[in-house]
Design a protein around this nucleic acid. Structure first.
Lengths: 196, 196
DNA sequence: GGGGCGAGTAGACACTGTCTACGAGCGCCT
DNA sequence: AGGCGCTCGTAGACAGTGTCTACTCGCCCC
């Protein structure tokens, strides 16, 4: 698991991360990743039996970075004295911010056809993140139904906003590329109007 | 545009629709569609200069069917005396129902990487549908901000639910495959509790 | 009746992911 | 010290893909 342990494995993932950031998902050909890492096209097979497993490893990196980004945003919110609602705001913004800053990676992370087989494991990595969401929602809305359901509905809203923005529908509909008003509307709808 | 006009064009799209229903997006190879339509692999090129344009035509079929399904559900709701909230319920359920019944097609419809170039045109086909949404939301919440923003936020919620369900996250989170409680939560959040 | 042309065929090309045979380089053990 | 074995990466074959180009067949119109 260290940097030294199986150098090429880490280099391949790093090459994939770089490629998906610059060229999107379609730049993640097996041979192209191998070229980018400076090895022959057969080399990845030693560490990743199939192309999909390499993609899954790249996606795993993305989930890690997403988790880190959100944890960081949450810690920052807590540090500046935010309450539950403020923390949820910060987490939601971090989610959308990650999707906007890493559209290719975000797409890869949720392309179940590319990750089949490893999908279940990747899904599990989002659980801790989700649990903090649930805790905050429960704190904000005590005793009003299952907080997991409310949280899942909210998460789906964030996710939909992220997807539809990269798909380009939002600008068509609202006339603006800005998700901010939509995000506010979604948060207000699910969590109640923000305290001001 | 009739059945007779360029027979093969329609047959190719029909073959694609069938293939995507049974084998998902990855079954939509150009050569495989041609085989399924009983022609050689070079034939599609006469009607679709590139593979992506054929996929776009298949997706266009999907958008048409989605629009029809939602319009039908809405008409049914109106026929049974539903108010604005009831119609929105029916429309939302139709959207999720379509996504659940045609997961491959739904995925294709929102795979911008496969539809690049034709994406803008396809997006436009959803506008009338969206406008009825906006009208109903405006009727339900008169004078509370831009109804287009509220509607876009709601649509994103539906879309996110559809995507996350096919991705398999919802079962992990809520312990159940059923979207119904999540849908109710989303609708209640955005539209207020349902009249009963 | 013959020329042009639209429609589909067939093959070439570069490229992909997978599989297999091979070889270079290193550590280990006697 | 020397040979063995094993890990790691190379190189080529293979079937399959999307695109492009040459071609052929059949039909319509003059």
């Amino acid at each position: 698991m260290t940097d030294q342990d199986s150098d090429l494995r880490a280099r391949l993932v790093a090459a994939g991360v770089e490629l998906v950031a610059t060229g999107g998902v379609q730049a993640l050909g097996l041979r192209e990743i191998a070229r980018h890492a400076g090895v022959s096209h057969g080399a990845p097979r030693r560490y990743f039996p199939t192309h999909r497993e390499l993609l899954a490893a790249i996606a795993r990196n993305g989930f890690g970075r997403l988790t880190d980004a959100m944890a960081g945003a949450d810690a920052l919110a807590v540090g500046s004295g935010a309450d539950a609602r403020g923390r949820l705001d910060a987490l939601a913004r971090a989610y959308l911010g990650f999707a906007a800053a890493n559209p290719g990676m975000f797409e890869l992370m949720f392309r179940h056809d590319l990750l089949e087989g490893s999908g279940a494991e990747l899904r599990r990595t989002t659980v801790p993140l989700f649990l903090t969401f649930v805790g905050l929602v429960a704190e904000l809305h005590p005793g009003s139904g299952d907080p997991a359901v409310a949280t899942a509905a909210l998460w789906a809203n964030l996710h939909g906003l992220a997807q539809l923005r990269t798909w380009g529908s939002l600008r068509l509909i609202t006339g603006s590329e800005d998700v901010e008003p939509l995000l506010r509307a979604a948060l207000d709808a699910h969590l109640g109007p923000a305290a001001r």
